[in-house]
Design a protein around this nucleic acid. Structure first.
Lengths: 232, 232
DNA sequence: CCCGCTATTTGCGCAACGGCAAATTGCCGC
DNA sequence: GCGGCAATTTGCCGTTGCGCAAATAGCGGG
Protein backbone atom coordinates (compact mmCIF):
# COMPACT_ATOMS: atom_id res chain seq x y z
CA UNK A 1 0.00 0.00 0.00
CA UNK A 2 1.22 3.52 -0.74
CA UNK A 3 2.61 5.63 2.07
CA UNK A 4 1.09 8.92 2.95
CA UNK A 5 3.11 12.06 2.48
CA UNK A 6 2.08 13.29 5.92
CA UNK A 7 4.46 10.69 7.34
CA UNK A 8 7.46 12.76 6.39
CA UNK A 9 6.19 16.22 5.53
CA UNK A 10 6.68 17.31 9.12
CA UNK A 11 10.32 16.25 9.34
CA UNK A 12 13.03 18.89 9.12
CA UNK A 13 14.98 16.53 6.89
CA UNK A 14 12.41 16.83 4.10
CA UNK A 15 11.10 20.30 4.87
CA UNK A 16 12.79 21.97 1.92
CA UNK A 17 11.44 19.53 -0.63
CA UNK A 18 8.33 20.07 -2.73
CA UNK A 19 5.30 17.83 -2.16
CA UNK A 20 6.02 16.12 -5.46
CA UNK A 21 9.57 15.36 -4.42
CA UNK A 22 8.36 14.03 -1.11
CA UNK A 23 5.93 11.76 -2.94
CA UNK A 24 8.72 10.55 -5.15
CA UNK A 25 10.95 9.66 -2.25
CA UNK A 26 8.14 7.99 -0.39
CA UNK A 27 7.23 5.93 -3.40
CA UNK A 28 10.65 4.32 -3.21
CA UNK A 29 10.53 3.72 0.51
CA UNK A 30 9.53 0.65 2.34
CA UNK A 31 8.15 1.02 5.82
CA UNK A 32 9.18 -1.35 8.54
CA UNK A 33 8.14 -2.13 12.08
CA UNK A 34 10.60 -3.36 14.63
CA UNK A 35 9.49 -4.71 17.98
CA UNK A 36 11.44 -3.77 21.10
CA UNK A 37 14.92 -5.37 21.17
CA UNK A 38 14.85 -6.24 17.47
CA UNK A 39 18.14 -5.87 15.63
CA UNK A 40 17.43 -3.53 12.72
CA UNK A 41 20.86 -4.03 11.29
CA UNK A 42 24.04 -5.56 12.63
CA UNK A 43 27.59 -4.27 12.81
CA UNK A 44 29.80 -5.40 9.89
CA UNK A 45 26.77 -6.46 7.89
CA UNK A 46 26.50 -5.34 4.28
CA UNK A 47 24.74 -1.98 4.32
CA UNK A 48 21.65 -2.85 2.29
CA UNK A 49 19.48 0.07 3.41
CA UNK A 50 19.41 3.45 5.04
CA UNK A 51 16.60 4.62 7.29
CA UNK A 52 14.56 7.38 8.81
CA UNK A 53 13.03 6.71 12.19
CA UNK A 54 9.35 7.66 12.25
CA UNK A 55 8.48 6.53 15.75
CA UNK A 56 10.36 5.05 18.67
CA UNK A 57 13.95 5.12 19.88
CA UNK A 58 16.93 3.24 18.61
CA UNK A 59 20.14 2.31 20.33
CA UNK A 60 23.29 2.29 18.19
CA UNK A 61 25.84 -0.11 19.64
CA UNK A 62 29.43 -0.96 18.82
CA UNK A 63 30.71 -4.32 19.95
CA UNK A 64 34.43 -4.97 20.40
CA UNK A 65 36.13 -8.17 19.27
CA UNK A 66 36.06 -9.45 22.84
CA UNK A 67 32.38 -8.80 23.27
CA UNK A 68 32.27 -5.55 25.17
CA UNK A 69 29.63 -3.10 24.08
CA UNK A 70 29.64 0.66 23.78
CA UNK A 71 26.55 2.68 22.98
CA UNK A 72 27.43 5.14 20.24
CA UNK A 73 24.16 7.10 20.44
CA UNK A 74 20.40 6.95 20.62
CA UNK A 75 18.38 7.85 17.54
CA UNK A 76 15.22 9.89 18.04
CA UNK A 77 12.13 10.29 15.92
CA UNK A 78 12.75 12.06 12.65
CA UNK A 79 16.46 11.21 12.52
CA UNK A 80 18.40 9.42 9.83
CA UNK A 81 20.26 6.27 10.70
CA UNK A 82 22.20 3.58 8.92
CA UNK A 83 23.62 6.13 6.54
CA UNK A 84 26.78 4.17 5.87
CA UNK A 85 26.62 4.89 2.12
CA UNK A 86 26.64 8.64 2.72
CA UNK A 87 29.98 8.37 4.47
CA UNK A 88 31.48 6.03 1.96
CA UNK A 89 31.06 2.71 3.72
CA UNK A 90 29.63 -0.51 2.44
CA UNK A 91 29.08 -2.12 5.84
CA UNK A 92 27.44 -0.79 8.97
CA UNK A 93 29.95 0.35 11.58
CA UNK A 94 27.58 -0.49 14.44
CA UNK A 95 24.37 -2.33 15.22
CA UNK A 96 20.98 -0.67 15.56
CA UNK A 97 18.57 -2.08 18.12
CA UNK A 98 15.01 -0.96 18.79
CA UNK A 99 14.86 0.41 22.33
CA UNK A 100 11.06 0.35 22.09
CA UNK A 101 8.70 -0.70 19.32
CA UNK A 102 9.73 1.34 16.31
CA UNK A 103 8.51 2.36 12.89
CA UNK A 104 10.99 3.37 10.23
CA UNK A 105 11.22 4.04 6.53
CA UNK A 106 13.97 2.28 4.62
CA UNK A 107 15.49 2.79 1.20
CA UNK A 108 17.92 0.51 -0.61
CA UNK A 109 21.45 1.79 -0.28
CA UNK A 110 21.92 1.99 -4.02
CA UNK A 111 19.36 4.80 -4.19
CA UNK A 112 21.51 7.04 -2.04
CA UNK A 113 23.56 8.47 -4.86
CA UNK A 114 20.43 9.19 -6.92
CA UNK A 115 18.85 10.99 -4.00
CA UNK A 116 22.05 12.89 -3.30
CA UNK A 117 22.16 14.31 -6.80
CA UNK A 118 18.42 14.91 -7.15
CA UNK A 119 17.75 16.52 -3.80
CA UNK A 120 20.48 18.87 -2.66
CA UNK A 121 18.58 19.82 0.47
CA UNK A 122 18.50 16.19 1.53
CA UNK A 123 22.23 15.96 0.99
CA UNK A 124 23.05 19.06 2.94
CA UNK A 125 20.74 18.06 5.77
CA UNK A 126 22.36 14.66 5.88
CA UNK A 127 25.83 16.08 6.07
CA UNK A 128 24.80 18.55 8.69
CA UNK A 129 23.66 15.51 10.68
CA UNK A 130 26.94 13.72 10.14
CA UNK A 131 28.80 16.86 11.14
CA UNK A 132 26.72 17.23 14.26
CA UNK A 133 27.42 13.62 15.21
CA UNK A 134 31.12 14.19 14.71
CA UNK A 135 30.94 17.17 17.05
CA UNK A 136 29.03 15.21 19.65
CA UNK A 137 31.43 12.33 19.47
CA UNK A 138 34.44 14.61 19.84
CA UNK A 139 32.76 16.22 22.81
CA UNK A 140 32.38 12.80 24.31
CA UNK A 141 36.09 12.15 23.86
CA UNK A 142 36.82 15.40 25.64
CA UNK A 143 34.56 14.44 28.52
CA UNK A 144 36.07 11.00 28.81
CA UNK A 145 39.53 12.52 28.85
CA UNK A 146 38.97 15.26 31.36
CA UNK A 147 36.08 14.39 33.64
CA UNK A 148 35.53 12.02 36.50
CA UNK A 149 32.96 9.27 36.17
CA UNK A 150 30.41 11.15 38.27
CA UNK A 151 30.49 14.20 36.01
CA UNK A 152 30.30 12.08 32.90
CA UNK A 153 27.28 10.18 34.10
CA UNK A 154 25.59 13.43 35.10
CA UNK A 155 26.31 14.99 31.71
CA UNK A 156 25.02 11.92 29.92
CA UNK A 157 21.75 11.82 31.85
CA UNK A 158 21.23 15.53 31.29
CA UNK A 159 21.77 15.01 27.59
CA UNK A 160 19.30 12.14 27.56
CA UNK A 161 16.56 14.12 29.26
CA UNK A 162 17.23 16.99 26.90
CA UNK A 163 16.77 14.93 23.77
CA UNK A 164 14.20 12.44 25.02
CA UNK A 165 12.78 13.87 28.22
CA UNK A 166 9.15 13.69 29.20
CA UNK A 167 7.57 15.67 32.03
CA UNK A 168 6.06 13.68 34.87
CA UNK A 169 4.80 14.73 38.28
CA UNK A 170 8.12 13.67 39.82
CA UNK A 171 10.34 15.44 37.30
CA UNK A 172 11.68 14.79 33.83
CA UNK A 173 11.90 11.21 32.78
CA UNK A 174 13.81 9.53 29.98
CA UNK A 175 11.26 8.51 27.42
CA UNK A 176 12.45 4.98 26.78
CA UNK A 177 13.58 2.09 28.95
CA UNK A 178 17.23 2.37 29.86
CA UNK A 179 19.22 0.21 32.24
CA UNK A 180 22.13 1.09 34.47
CA UNK A 181 24.17 -1.10 32.18
CA UNK A 182 23.15 1.07 29.22
CA UNK A 183 24.23 4.21 31.02
CA UNK A 184 27.50 2.52 31.87
CA UNK A 185 28.03 1.72 28.20
CA UNK A 186 27.47 5.36 27.30
CA UNK A 187 29.93 6.69 29.83
CA UNK A 188 32.72 4.16 29.87
CA UNK A 189 32.13 2.80 33.33
CA UNK A 190 30.42 -0.21 34.93
CA UNK A 191 26.83 -0.76 35.90
CA UNK A 192 27.98 -1.04 39.52
CA UNK A 193 29.43 2.42 39.56
CA UNK A 194 26.37 3.87 37.84
CA UNK A 195 24.12 2.18 40.36
CA UNK A 196 26.15 3.54 43.27
CA UNK A 197 26.09 7.06 41.87
CA UNK A 198 22.38 7.00 41.23
CA UNK A 199 21.65 5.58 44.65
CA UNK A 200 23.59 8.46 46.17
CA UNK A 201 21.74 10.98 43.99
CA UNK A 202 18.46 9.41 44.95
CA UNK A 203 19.32 9.85 48.63
CA UNK A 204 19.90 13.52 47.92
CA UNK A 205 16.60 13.86 46.09
CA UNK A 206 18.16 14.65 42.74
CA UNK A 207 16.82 11.69 40.80
CA UNK A 208 14.23 8.98 41.20
CA UNK A 209 15.30 5.57 40.04
CA UNK A 210 13.25 2.71 38.81
CA UNK A 211 13.65 -0.44 36.84
CA UNK A 212 14.86 0.61 33.40
CA UNK A 213 13.82 4.12 34.24
CA UNK A 214 15.44 7.36 35.28
CA UNK A 215 13.58 10.46 36.40
CA UNK A 216 15.42 13.65 37.20
CA UNK A 217 13.64 15.61 39.89
CA UNK A 218 16.24 18.32 40.37
CA UNK A 219 17.96 19.02 37.03
CA UNK A 220 19.65 22.08 38.40
CA UNK A 221 21.49 20.19 41.06
CA UNK A 222 22.44 17.53 38.54
CA UNK A 223 23.93 20.29 36.39
CA UNK A 224 25.99 21.46 39.31
CA UNK A 225 27.38 17.95 39.68
CA UNK A 226 28.08 17.76 35.95
CA UNK A 227 29.97 21.04 35.98
CA UNK A 228 31.73 20.50 39.24
CA UNK A 229 35.46 20.98 38.96
CA UNK A 230 37.49 19.17 41.50
CA UNK A 231 40.89 20.59 40.56
CA UNK A 232 42.39 23.99 39.86
CA UNK B 1 51.93 35.39 -7.83
CA UNK B 2 49.84 32.59 -9.34
CA UNK B 3 50.02 29.14 -7.83
CA UNK B 4 51.12 26.19 -9.86
CA UNK B 5 48.68 23.42 -10.55
CA UNK B 6 51.27 20.84 -9.62
CA UNK B 7 50.73 21.87 -6.02
CA UNK B 8 47.45 20.05 -5.88
CA UNK B 9 47.28 17.82 -8.92
CA UNK B 10 48.82 14.99 -6.93
CA UNK B 11 46.30 15.10 -4.12
CA UNK B 12 43.53 12.49 -3.98
CA UNK B 13 41.14 15.23 -3.01
CA UNK B 14 41.43 16.87 -6.43
CA UNK B 15 42.28 13.80 -8.49
CA UNK B 16 38.90 13.58 -10.18
CA UNK B 17 38.90 17.18 -11.36
CA UNK B 18 39.99 18.36 -14.78
CA UNK B 19 43.13 20.50 -15.09
CA UNK B 20 40.92 23.50 -15.86
CA UNK B 21 38.91 22.96 -12.72
CA UNK B 22 42.05 22.61 -10.69
CA UNK B 23 43.31 25.90 -12.12
CA UNK B 24 40.02 27.54 -11.24
CA UNK B 25 40.17 26.39 -7.65
CA UNK B 26 43.80 27.37 -7.30
CA UNK B 27 43.10 30.82 -8.66
CA UNK B 28 40.83 31.44 -5.71
CA UNK B 29 43.23 30.07 -3.15
CA UNK B 30 45.67 31.93 -1.05
CA UNK B 31 48.75 30.09 0.13
CA UNK B 32 50.00 30.51 3.64
CA UNK B 33 53.06 29.56 5.63
CA UNK B 34 52.85 28.84 9.31
CA UNK B 35 55.95 28.48 11.45
CA UNK B 36 56.10 25.75 14.07
CA UNK B 37 53.71 26.42 16.97
CA UNK B 38 51.72 29.03 15.07
CA UNK B 39 48.00 29.05 15.68
CA UNK B 40 46.39 28.71 12.26
CA UNK B 41 42.94 29.22 13.64
CA UNK B 42 41.52 29.22 17.14
CA UNK B 43 38.62 27.39 18.68
CA UNK B 44 35.38 29.42 18.76
CA UNK B 45 36.76 31.89 16.24
CA UNK B 46 34.62 32.86 13.27
CA UNK B 47 35.39 30.32 10.53
CA UNK B 48 36.79 32.65 7.88
CA UNK B 49 38.61 30.03 5.80
CA UNK B 50 39.00 26.37 5.07
CA UNK B 51 42.31 24.77 4.22
CA UNK B 52 44.31 22.04 2.58
CA UNK B 53 47.64 21.17 4.11
CA UNK B 54 50.38 21.01 1.49
CA UNK B 55 53.35 20.35 3.74
CA UNK B 56 53.87 19.78 7.43
CA UNK B 57 51.77 18.43 10.27
CA UNK B 58 49.02 20.10 12.20
CA UNK B 59 47.68 19.40 15.66
CA UNK B 60 43.97 19.93 16.18
CA UNK B 61 43.27 20.73 19.82
CA UNK B 62 40.13 21.19 21.87
CA UNK B 63 40.41 23.22 25.04
CA UNK B 64 37.88 22.85 27.87
CA UNK B 65 36.45 25.81 29.77
CA UNK B 66 38.86 25.11 32.62
CA UNK B 67 41.88 25.02 30.38
CA UNK B 68 42.50 21.33 29.85
CA UNK B 69 43.47 20.31 26.36
CA UNK B 70 42.59 17.29 24.27
CA UNK B 71 44.16 16.56 20.91
CA UNK B 72 41.38 15.73 18.46
CA UNK B 73 43.72 14.60 15.68
CA UNK B 74 46.79 15.32 13.62
CA UNK B 75 46.40 16.50 10.05
CA UNK B 76 48.79 15.12 7.45
CA UNK B 77 49.89 16.43 4.10
CA UNK B 78 47.13 16.50 1.53
CA UNK B 79 44.31 16.58 4.06
CA UNK B 80 41.54 19.09 4.45
CA UNK B 81 41.15 20.96 7.69
CA UNK B 82 39.09 23.78 9.09
CA UNK B 83 36.09 22.56 7.13
CA UNK B 84 33.59 23.98 9.60
CA UNK B 85 31.36 25.30 6.78
CA UNK B 86 30.99 21.84 5.29
CA UNK B 87 29.47 20.55 8.49
CA UNK B 88 27.23 23.52 9.04
CA UNK B 89 29.24 25.49 11.56
CA UNK B 90 30.19 29.12 11.52
CA UNK B 91 32.92 28.86 14.14
CA UNK B 92 35.82 26.45 14.44
CA UNK B 93 35.19 23.69 16.98
CA UNK B 94 38.89 23.38 17.80
CA UNK B 95 42.21 25.14 17.31
CA UNK B 96 44.75 24.20 14.67
CA UNK B 97 48.42 24.51 15.56
CA UNK B 98 51.41 23.90 13.31
CA UNK B 99 53.37 20.97 14.75
CA UNK B 100 56.22 21.84 12.38
CA UNK B 101 56.64 24.58 9.78
CA UNK B 102 53.67 24.22 7.46
CA UNK B 103 52.42 25.30 4.08
CA UNK B 104 48.70 25.36 3.37
CA UNK B 105 46.20 26.62 0.87
CA UNK B 106 43.24 28.58 2.18
CA UNK B 107 39.93 29.60 0.69
CA UNK B 108 37.38 31.99 2.13
CA UNK B 109 34.55 30.09 3.80
CA UNK B 110 31.92 31.74 1.64
CA UNK B 111 33.33 29.92 -1.42
CA UNK B 112 32.51 26.54 0.07
CA UNK B 113 28.95 26.41 -1.21
CA UNK B 114 30.06 27.42 -4.72
CA UNK B 115 32.68 24.72 -4.74
CA UNK B 116 30.24 22.18 -3.37
CA UNK B 117 27.82 22.75 -6.21
CA UNK B 118 30.43 23.10 -8.96
CA UNK B 119 32.66 20.17 -8.06
CA UNK B 120 30.75 17.10 -6.96
CA UNK B 121 33.91 15.06 -6.58
CA UNK B 122 35.26 17.60 -4.13
CA UNK B 123 32.06 17.37 -2.13
CA UNK B 124 32.01 13.62 -2.01
CA UNK B 125 35.68 13.44 -1.11
CA UNK B 126 35.11 15.95 1.66
CA UNK B 127 32.23 14.01 3.11
CA UNK B 128 34.14 10.79 2.88
CA UNK B 129 36.77 12.56 4.99
CA UNK B 130 34.20 13.72 7.51
CA UNK B 131 32.75 10.24 7.64
CA UNK B 132 36.18 8.72 8.18
CA UNK B 133 36.86 11.13 10.99
CA UNK B 134 33.56 10.23 12.59
CA UNK B 135 34.54 6.57 12.43
CA UNK B 136 37.94 7.26 13.93
CA UNK B 137 36.48 9.32 16.69
CA UNK B 138 33.92 6.66 17.54
CA UNK B 139 36.69 4.12 17.60
CA UNK B 140 38.52 6.29 20.06
CA UNK B 141 35.45 6.39 22.29
CA UNK B 142 35.33 2.61 22.18
CA UNK B 143 38.98 2.38 23.14
CA UNK B 144 38.62 4.84 25.97
CA UNK B 145 35.63 2.91 27.25
CA UNK B 146 37.04 -0.57 27.11
CA UNK B 147 40.82 -0.47 27.28
CA UNK B 148 43.40 0.17 29.94
CA UNK B 149 45.74 3.10 29.61
CA UNK B 150 48.62 0.93 28.44
CA UNK B 151 46.66 -0.48 25.53
CA UNK B 152 45.33 2.92 24.56
CA UNK B 153 48.78 4.46 24.47
CA UNK B 154 50.08 1.54 22.45
CA UNK B 155 47.23 1.83 19.96
CA UNK B 156 47.75 5.55 19.66
CA UNK B 157 51.45 5.26 18.96
CA UNK B 158 50.85 2.53 16.41
CA UNK B 159 48.33 4.76 14.68
CA UNK B 160 50.80 7.64 14.66
CA UNK B 161 53.59 5.62 13.08
CA UNK B 162 51.11 4.30 10.56
CA UNK B 163 50.03 7.71 9.38
CA UNK B 164 53.23 9.62 9.90
CA UNK B 165 55.97 7.05 10.33
CA UNK B 166 59.45 7.37 8.90
CA UNK B 167 62.00 4.56 8.71
CA UNK B 168 65.22 5.06 10.59
CA UNK B 169 68.05 2.68 11.45
CA UNK B 170 66.53 2.18 14.94
CA UNK B 171 62.98 1.59 13.78
CA UNK B 172 59.99 3.63 12.72
CA UNK B 173 59.87 7.14 14.01
CA UNK B 174 57.02 9.61 14.26
CA UNK B 175 57.72 12.23 11.66
CA UNK B 176 57.03 15.31 13.77
CA UNK B 177 57.98 16.42 17.27
CA UNK B 178 55.59 15.02 19.85
CA UNK B 179 55.85 15.26 23.61
CA UNK B 180 54.71 12.84 26.30
CA UNK B 181 52.17 15.48 27.18
CA UNK B 182 50.82 15.37 23.62
CA UNK B 183 50.45 11.61 23.79
CA UNK B 184 48.70 11.98 27.13
CA UNK B 185 46.27 14.43 25.55
CA UNK B 186 45.51 11.94 22.81
CA UNK B 187 44.83 9.07 25.19
CA UNK B 188 43.13 10.67 28.14
CA UNK B 189 45.90 10.13 30.65
CA UNK B 190 48.75 12.15 32.17
CA UNK B 191 52.25 12.78 30.93
CA UNK B 192 53.54 10.96 33.99
CA UNK B 193 51.76 7.77 33.12
CA UNK B 194 52.88 8.00 29.49
CA UNK B 195 56.43 8.55 30.60
CA UNK B 196 56.32 5.55 32.92
CA UNK B 197 54.88 3.33 30.21
CA UNK B 198 57.43 4.40 27.65
CA UNK B 199 60.29 3.97 30.06
CA UNK B 200 59.13 0.42 30.68
CA UNK B 201 58.83 -0.24 26.95
CA UNK B 202 62.26 1.21 26.40
CA UNK B 203 63.70 -1.20 28.98
CA UNK B 204 62.13 -4.02 27.03
CA UNK B 205 63.56 -2.76 23.75
CA UNK B 206 60.20 -2.01 22.17
CA UNK B 207 60.66 1.72 21.69
CA UNK B 208 63.44 4.26 21.78
CA UNK B 209 62.53 7.51 23.45
CA UNK B 210 63.96 10.92 22.90
CA UNK B 211 63.06 14.49 23.52
CA UNK B 212 59.86 15.14 21.56
CA UNK B 213 60.54 11.97 19.68
CA UNK B 214 59.28 8.42 19.63
CA UNK B 215 60.82 5.59 17.66
CA UNK B 216 59.27 2.16 17.62
CA UNK B 217 61.89 -0.51 17.23
CA UNK B 218 59.61 -3.51 17.69
CA UNK B 219 56.18 -2.72 16.25
CA UNK B 220 55.10 -6.29 16.56
CA UNK B 221 55.57 -6.41 20.28
CA UNK B 222 53.83 -3.07 20.63
CA UNK B 223 50.89 -4.56 18.77
CA UNK B 224 50.79 -7.42 21.20
CA UNK B 225 50.56 -4.93 24.04
CA UNK B 226 47.85 -3.00 22.23
CA UNK B 227 45.76 -6.11 21.69
CA UNK B 228 46.44 -7.65 25.04
CA UNK B 229 43.23 -8.63 26.78
CA UNK B 230 43.46 -8.78 30.52
CA UNK B 231 39.95 -10.04 31.24
CA UNK B 232 37.71 -12.80 30.00
C1' DC C 1 -1.12 -15.21 42.25
C1' DC C 2 3.19 -17.25 42.03
C1' DC C 3 7.63 -18.33 39.53
C1' DG C 4 11.53 -17.19 37.34
C1' DC C 5 14.24 -14.02 35.11
C1' DT C 6 16.53 -9.78 34.87
C1' DA C 7 17.77 -5.51 36.80
C1' DT C 8 19.50 -3.34 40.70
C1' DT C 9 21.78 -2.63 45.03
C1' DT C 10 25.54 -2.94 48.10
C1' DG C 11 29.71 -4.57 50.72
C1' DC C 12 34.53 -5.50 50.44
C1' DG C 13 39.12 -5.51 48.79
C1' DC C 14 42.42 -4.09 45.56
C1' DA C 15 44.77 -2.50 41.39
C1' DA C 16 45.46 1.03 38.20
C1' DC C 17 46.48 5.52 37.76
C1' DG C 18 46.67 10.24 39.03
C1' DG C 19 48.77 13.96 41.99
C1' DC C 20 52.71 15.92 43.94
C1' DA C 21 57.43 16.78 44.34
C1' DA C 22 61.98 16.75 43.03
C1' DA C 23 65.78 15.41 40.34
C1' DT C 24 67.72 15.05 35.80
C1' DT C 25 68.51 15.62 31.06
C1' DG C 26 68.78 17.61 26.55
C1' DC C 27 68.59 21.47 23.63
C1' DC C 28 68.52 26.18 21.94
C1' DG C 29 70.12 30.61 21.81
C1' DC C 30 73.29 33.95 23.32
C1' DG D 1 80.70 27.08 25.96
C1' DC D 2 77.29 28.01 29.05
C1' DG D 3 72.92 29.41 31.13
C1' DG D 4 68.25 28.81 31.19
C1' DC D 5 64.21 26.56 29.97
C1' DA D 6 61.32 22.89 28.75
C1' DA D 7 60.78 18.01 28.60
C1' DT D 8 61.30 13.91 30.89
C1' DT D 9 61.93 10.63 34.57
C1' DT D 10 60.92 8.61 38.87
C1' DG D 11 59.52 7.72 43.75
C1' DC D 12 55.80 7.74 46.87
C1' DC D 13 51.20 7.92 48.28
C1' DG D 14 46.26 8.48 47.99
C1' DT D 15 42.02 7.85 45.61
C1' DT D 16 38.92 6.47 42.27
C1' DG D 17 36.45 3.22 40.46
C1' DC D 18 36.57 -1.68 39.11
C1' DG D 19 36.12 -6.83 40.04
C1' DC D 20 33.74 -10.14 42.54
C1' DA D 21 30.05 -11.91 45.13
C1' DA D 22 25.76 -12.15 47.04
C1' DA D 23 21.41 -10.33 48.37
C1' DT D 24 17.21 -8.01 46.93
C1' DA D 25 13.58 -6.24 44.24
C1' DG D 26 10.43 -5.61 40.17
C1' DC D 27 8.06 -7.32 36.37
C1' DG D 28 6.02 -10.26 32.95
C1' DG D 29 4.13 -14.58 31.82
C1' DG D 30 1.79 -18.64 32.75
Amino acid sequence: MPLDRSLISGLALFAEMTPAEQEDILAKARSSRHPKDAVIFAQEEEAHSFFVLLAGHIRVVKTTPDGEQVIARYINEGELFGIAPAIGRTTYPASAIAAVDCVALAWPTRLWSDFASSYPSLTSNTYATVGRRLQETQQRVVEMSTEQVEQRVAHTILRLIKQAGRKTPEGIEIDFPITRQDIAEMTGTTLHTVSRLMSAWEDEGIVVGGRQKVTVSDPHRLMLIAEHRRKR
